[in-house]
């Protein structure tokens, strides 16, 4: 039963939580504001920036003209979408089989897959780097797509597994009793129930792949560098150009911020491997 709460309590809660939320969000807000300012305005005192300066979209054009921003943007898109799709193709059958035809060792297999995710990447950095160097995969989109697919594969399988397991087996049996063929069973019974789970898996994995910043930094140079590596090139001395740093940053984080807002719940399930739902 919901308790009656006085409006005053609610207002007080809103004020406290709102202030803290604003402080957490402020760095992002500041990126957004500075990206529309000139360099001269961007380094003025915060209050002057807010109230005594104009707006411009110059920075976005400069960033694109100077460093071919869209190449890196499309690299990020290719790598994150590619690795997610590739991962799904491999993960869907595996998760499906483990959820609906569990064997004695299914649990061990799942735990082993999880354990590969626990491995710190530096543990395999040297051999992977050497293998990539010798096979010409360094700084290639294909190599990076495969690597990102592999590091996220355990998460994809786990997420799908937890979603599939929630589909009651009786429904499948009932469909079969009613004479549904396997094709119909998958198309009309399973797919509609599995789609929301698959959709949130896709969402979370695009986010993870987009923001991955160990392998993308170590395995790319100029050619295949996605946005994580592109932004890293602002570390010095370009970082001192606040407006351009902000413009480049805003374009790099905006798509994922928007997607992230839609995937809050799935994030919990995906990143805790179903331990917290």
């Amino acid at each position: 039963m919901a308790r009656a709460v006085s409006t005053r309590t609610k207002v007080l809660n809103t004020a406290i939580a709102g202030t803290l939320g604003f402080l957490m969000f402020f760095p992002i807000l500041w990126i957004i504001i500075l990206s529309f300012k000139t360099e001269e305005d961007a380094i003025r005192a915060p209050l002057e920036v807010l109230f005594q300066s104009g707006w411009t979209i110059e920075n976005f054009l400069t960033v694109q003209a100077r460093s071919d921003y869209f190449k890196h943007f499309s690299n990020s898109v290719i790598i994150s979408l590619g690795s997610t799709l590739l991962g799904l193709i491999i993960a869907i059958p595996a998760a499906w089989a483990m959820a609906f035809v569990p064997a004695k060792r299914t649990k061990d297999v799942l735990m082993w897959m999880l354990s590969t995710k626990m491995m710190p990447p530096v543990g395999v950095l040297v051999p992977i780097y050497l293998i990539f160097r010798d096979t010409g995969l360094l700084d290639s989109l294909i190599g990076l797509t495969v690597v990102l697919m592999l590091i996220n594969l355990p998460i994809i399988i786990w997420m799908l597994y937890t979603y599939f397991r929630e589909i009651p087996g009786e429904i499948l049996e009932a469909a079969r009793m009613d004479g549904a063929t396997l094709k119909k069973e998958i198309l009309y019974v399973l797919a509609p129930m599995a789609l929301p789970g698959i959709a949130s898996t896709i969402l979370l994995n695009i986010i993870l792949a987009w923001n991955e910043a160990f392998w993308t930094l170590n395995l790319t140079a100029a050619n295949a560098a996605p946005l994580t590596a592109f932004i890293a090139s602002y570390s010095s001395p370009e970082g001192l150009f606040f407006a351009k740093l902000s413009a480049a940053s805003l374009m790099a984080i905006a798509p994922i911020l928007i997607m992230g807002w839609f995937s809050q719940k799935q994030l919990v399930r995906g990143l805790t491997f179903g331990a917290v739902k």
């Binding site: 994580t228 970082g239 984080i253």
Partner: peptide, 19 residues
């Protein structure tokens, strides 16, 4: 408010570090 609190998680590491 919840969205504002959660937003930093979606910022890529290189961006948050440099900003």
């Amino acid at each position: 408010i919840r969205i504002m609190v959660i937003a930093p998680f979606f910022v890529m590491p290189t961006v948050s570090a440099l900003v």
